[in-house]
Design a protein around this nucleic acid. Structure first.
Length: 448
DNA sequence: GTTGAGCGTT
């Protein structure tokens, strides 16, 4: 469905030469969008950890930064990107972490960063009976290099309908976890295997931003925090509540910002862990109070921003999305609405605390911003927001154990979304639900 | 020749 696009035309896209250092030999040509901008996620797909670009001005010889806004890098001039070699800029966090280490080049930093974000095998549930290792590999290669595919069979060799895959890079993994997969007409669940629980890194990618002023929009927060690393999600509750949440691709960036004060629009905001310090009283009402699919009135800015679309065939796995913080992004093909919210928990199972920005240049495209309409319940009606501080748990897990809690039962990881909640399509939105035709996530029909 | 929640040595 989305493994190929019908009207993909390479010629349509301008390619930019980018290197992670000033060495021309390391340059990679990466495609920008039709509007001439380069998605940060596209950049990150090739240069994990990158948060921007710079280049040497041909005449002045000085280094110039490339303007970035809302996840998009803008060409230096109307003439486009031109021929200069663009060099990746890495978040200062990377440097911070490396301060105590001997000098390393950015390549080494990148590698190191990548290494921390370890890959895991991914289990694929609900594969079509006719799947083959080849067909599965072929499908998942759109997210990056696939290094392993194992389809499980019984003694007789009959396929059991599930299997395992492994990507070469964390970024690819994130991209794959970030969305739903329709393979040959079936919705396939891709997750971190239970057996890997606790093995994969579990770090919150989301931070709580306190003391926000009313004039701070999600985009303001995004613009500001992008300089520390790729921001994959921003949430600012409306009506005004003096706080917001910012999710980074890199959990380390999120971590390193915690405890800091920052000045945005002239006001000092405080960054702290998005995980609840302590759970206040009885708060298991989250599920029912607003974090579900029915909720979408927050002022949230999607990974790549942009105009919203009419929905109908989104492939984004919102569950994984929230936790992974992935930003399925890339190729020209499909466009998606941004189902950001719900998801928060998927990553428990996936093990990633926050929203990972899933870059990529070959995956589904993410043109649409989040649904803007106020659909259903809202923040107002949620009495839990009356308390100061973040909600008890962004994980939405019944266990209410915060980011790293090993909630093993009764939470979203157990597939609570599977039974078709009223969600997306039933609230006056334009329908950015999982499937255009169904009422839930698992709309697979038995095959014949 | 069928099937559709699950969790990997075959």
């Amino acid at each position: 469905m989305n493994s190929k696009s019908e009207n993909y035309n390479e010629d349509l896209f301008e390619y930019i030469r980018v290197s992670e250092d000033e060495d021309d030999a390391n340059a990679v040509e990466i495609p920008c969008e039709l509007d001439g901008t380069l998605l940060l996620s596209t950049l990150v797909a090739q240069f994990p950890g990158a948060c921007g670009l710079k280049y040497r001005h041909p005449e002045s010889k000085s280094v110039r930064g490339v303007r970035i806004s809302d996840g998009k890098l803008h060409p230096p001039s109307d003439a486009g990107w031109g021929k200069p070699l663009y060099v990746c800029v890495f978040p200062k966090e990377n440097k911070r972490k490396m301060e105590d280490v001997s000098p390393e080049n950015s390549a080494a930093k990148t590698k190191r960063l990548e290494k921390k974000l370890t890959c895991s095998d991914l289990i694929c549930l609900g594969l079509p009976w006719k799947s083959t290792e080849e067909s599965i590999r072929q499908y998942f290669e759109q997210f990056g290099e696939v290094v392993m595919v194992q389809l499980k069979r019984d003694k007789n060799g009959t396929f059991k309908g599930f299997g395992f895959i492994r990507f070469a890079t964390y970024v690819s993994q994130m991209r794959a976890l970030a969305q739903r997969h329709n393979i040959e007409g079936r919705w396939v669940d891709v997750r971190i295997p239970n057996s890997k629980e606790g093995v994969v890194p579990q770090m919150p990618c989301k931070v709580f931003v306190g003391r926000c002023t009313e004039d701070m929009t999600a985009d303001d927060l995004r613009d500001y925090f992008s300089k520390f690393g790729e921001v994959t999600d921003v949430f600012v509750p409306r009506p005004f509540r003096a706080f917001g949440f910012v999710t980074f691709l890199d959990p380390e960036v999120a971590q390193s910002l915690c405890g800091e004060d920052h000045v945005i629009k002239g006001a000092s905001v405080s960054v702290s862990s998005a995980a609840p310090k302590i759970k206040a009283k009885s708060n298991q009402s989250w599920k029912d109070d607003g974090y579900g699919p029915n909720n979408w009135d927050g002022n949230r800015s999607g990974p790549s921003g942009g105009s919203s679309n009419s929905g109908g065939s989104s492939n984004i796995d919102t569950l994984n999305m929230q936790n992974l913080g992935i930003n399925p992004n890339g190729g020209p093909p499909a466009n998606f609405n941004l189902p950001i919210s719900l998801v928060a928990a998927a990553l428990n199972q996936a093990g990633w605390g926050g929203f990972l920005g899933g870059p990529g240049n070959s995956g589904p495209n993410w043109q649409g911003g989040p649904p803007q309409g106020n659909s259903g319940k809202n923040w107002n009606s949620n009495q839990n927001w009356g308390q100061s501080g973040p909600p008890p748990s962004w994980n939405q897990g019944g266990g209410n154990q915060g980011w790293n809690g090993g909630n093993k039962s009764g939470n979203w990881n157990q597939g609570n979304w599977s039974n078709g909640q009223a969600g997306w399509n039933g609230s006056g939105n334009s329908g950015s639900g999982p499937s255009a035709s169904g009422n839930g996530w698992n709309n697979n029909k038995p095959q014949t």
